[in-house]
Simulated scan of single mutants.
Amino acid sequence: MKLLVVEDDETTGSYIARGLREEGQTVDLVTSGRDALIQATSTTYDVMVVDRMLPEIDGITLVKTLRGAGNKTPVLFLTSLGSVEDRILGLNSGGDDYLVKPFAFGELSARVAALARRPQALEQETILSAGDLSMDLIAREVTRAGQKIDLLPREFALLEHLLRRKGRVQTRTMLLEAIWDISFDPMTNVVETHISRLRAKIDKPFDTELIRTIRGAGYRIDA
């Protein structure tokens, strides 16, 4: 699993991150609501563990903002605010579970695992689109302006990844990890090669370019 832990107390945050990593999870740790918002809108996570009392953007506002933007990543609130009213507020703001400090790490781990197991099938889109480009995930078909486009499996996966994050920059590292399951830079041009091939099929024959290169950052698909 890939997890985001949002905790402004360095001792607590490091303790949680270390424990989850020891269980084999991939963990990103941030200490402010602003940094969490940036991470959550640029990276896909299986579960987020969020403190309520955060600098810059508090946990409730963070989750409400993410839900308003269509982010459905399960959220476990981990906080010292433990009254019934606090729990209700956290769950009504878009949280999926609520754990009060002090806590047992075993319970935290079990709750995270339970959230990750929740079926997401009903929430998954089956048609992705950008402008006149359409991808049918069930039929495994891609069309643009009514014309069918044949893609190789890796090209299909790359396009699906970009469409699911339409309007958001995806770095070379993000693409290597998501499409090729590579967590380090192999010093090859595999990403650039596949982007070029994809452009040749979905952009070059048409008037409008959809795949953008963001210099010094990565790639983004626009409508």
Rank of each mutant, 00 (worst) to 15 (best):
residue 176 L to M: 13
residue 135 M to P: 09
residue 126 T to D: 06
residue 191 V to N: 03
residue 38 I to E: 13
residue 199 R to K: 03
residue 206 F to V: 06
residue 66 L to N: 01
residue 23 E to C: 03
residue 99 L to V: 10
residue 222 D to G: 00
residue 58 D to W: 07
residue 115 L to T: 01
residue 202 I to C: 08
residue 41 T to K: 05
residue 32 S to T: 15
residue 64 K to Q: 13
residue 204 K to D: 10
residue 132 D to W: 06
residue 220 R to V: 07
residue 133 L to A: 14
residue 150 D to V: 15
residue 160 E to Q: 14
residue 161 H to P: 08
residue 81 L to Q: 15
residue 113 A to G: 10
residue 122 L to P: 00
residue 210 L to A: 02
residue 47 V to P: 05
residue 141 E to V: 12
residue 135 M to Y: 12
residue 188 T to E: 05
residue 45 Y to Q: 01
residue 114 A to E: 12
residue 94 G to K: 00
residue 119 P to R: 06
residue 211 I to W: 03
residue 18 R to L: 05
residue 181 D to L: 02
residue 22 E to P: 02
residue 57 I to F: 05
residue 209 E to M: 08
residue 84 V to C: 02
residue 43 T to E: 08
residue 115 L to W: 06
residue 114 A to W: 01
residue 54 L to D: 02
residue 121 A to M: 06
residue 145 A to D: 15
residue 148 K to S: 14
residue 163 L to V: 09
residue 192 E to A: 13
residue 58 D to Y: 07
residue 107 E to Y: 10
residue 60 I to H: 11
residue 40 A to K: 03
residue 184 F to A: 10
residue 177 E to G: 03
residue 30 V to E: 04
residue 153 P to M: 13
residue 146 G to H: 15
residue 139 A to H: 11
residue 100 V to K: 10
residue 101 K to T: 13
residue 60 I to W: 10
residue 139 A to T: 09
residue 28 D to V: 10
residue 194 H to D: 15
residue 135 M to R: 09
residue 151 L to A: 15
residue 205 P to K: 13
residue 201 K to W: 08
residue 134 S to L: 12
residue 180 W to P: 04
residue 182 I to T: 13
residue 183 S to G: 10
residue 81 L to R: 15
residue 69 A to P: 01
residue 186 P to S: 06
residue 123 E to G: 06
residue 19 G to W: 01
residue 125 E to K: 07
